[in-house]
Design a binder for these strands. Structure first.
Lengths: 188, 188
DNA sequence: ATAAACCTACCGAACGGTCGGTAGATTAAG
DNA sequence: CTTAATCTACCGACCGTTCGGTAGGTTTAT
């Protein structure tokens, strides 16, 4: 017997591989050994699958990052740990994270609007740690919001090229990115 | 009368807005006031449109960046200028750049394979400037290839949130990202 | 000069196929 | 016996693409 979660997992994988619009309900059905019509016993539409995946992904990432962000650590160390946690969570849930980052624009406008506030709550976690560092005099930067976008850019783009059997573990990648962001490229 | 270039321009805009698979030949035809059958007088298939756009985008970006990269500048200044040029070129050709970065995976495998070497030539421009900086003792980093990926990540992700009427110009954004990468976040 | 031949640009209609989704019968589980 | 799960069969809409044809300008042959 098939559960809704199994269907969502399979859908995430197929959405990741093909993209939302190129993936068909037929594809998803085949992946869980069902007929296409049988999917509609568990989900109400293709859009609903996408929405469920986006919510699930964002909730998971938010939880993992806020765990770290609630610890009392020095800002630089906290930032490093948050980057570790984020990249680890994304690669642990590769399909889900890829759908979140690359397919969210396939949500119909109405559902998409409902999704944005969650994004903002997530971004706030990163803005907070930057501001902590600035207040403590440990960080320097002229535009925290832009710094957050840069930070998320590096990490989000990672899932477009990361492959689990690469030379570096995701922890090593996270540490190098953290060092790069904290200390910069210029030698002195 | 309609030219092939006008059709490609319209296609780029629609591919950017909807994504390749969600965009139909009908959409493109309507955008240039033609019947969809008439498109096939100018292009041979939807895939061919995508391939033409990707080639065009990569050629344009490569040209703009190599112009800067061929100048003899100090590595840190050269990197800054390359980042400026890249972000400027991407926002000057927003539709084209978005298609390049987000829709290249919609190319059929055969065409996609033919596209990869061009990507590598482009990435090499960035690897070279990092290595120049290392050789000159101006830069420090343990893994140049990973640094390049971080660099491209920040910049590539920019087109997912950048809007031309934002508070910052693209030059300001480029400069701040360059400073962030060169000097880091940590105060000292 | 003129008419035949050709070319470019476009159109309406249609093709085979796939899409997301529905209706209703059938099977499996408790 | 009931209800949850899955099936077969089907729907209208739309997909990318092809086809036959046409209007009108340009070239070629006489």
């Amino acid at each position: 017997m098939m559960t809704r979660d199994q269907i969502l997992d399979a859908a995430a994988q197929i959405f990741r591989q093909k993209g939302y619009h190129a993936a068909s309900m037929q594809d998803i059905a085949a992946a869980v050994n069902l007929q296409k019509a049988s999917l509609y016993h568990h989900v109400s539409s293709k859009q609903e699958i996408l929405l469920a995946l986006l919510d699930q992904a964002l909730e998971l990432l938010f939880e993992r990052i806020s765990e770290v962000s609630n610890q009392s650590l020095a800002p630089d160390e906290k930032l490093r740990q948050m980057m570790r946690a984020y990249l680890k969570a994304m690669t642990d849930h590769f399909d889900l994270a890829t759908v979140l980052l690359l397919e969210h624009r396939s949500l119909e406008p109405k559902l998409h609007a409902r999704h944005i506030p969650n994004r903002d709550r997530f971004e706030a976690l990163w803005r907070d740690v930057i501001n902590e560092g600035l207040d403590a005099g440990a960080f320097q930067c002229s535009d925290p919001a832009l710094t957050v976008r840069g930070l998320l850019g590096v990490m989000n783009w990672t899932i477009t090229w990361y492959r689990p059997n690469g030379a570096l573990t995701i922890e090593q990648i996270a540490d190098q990115f953290a060092s790069l962001f904290l200390d910069g490229l210029r030698r002195r």
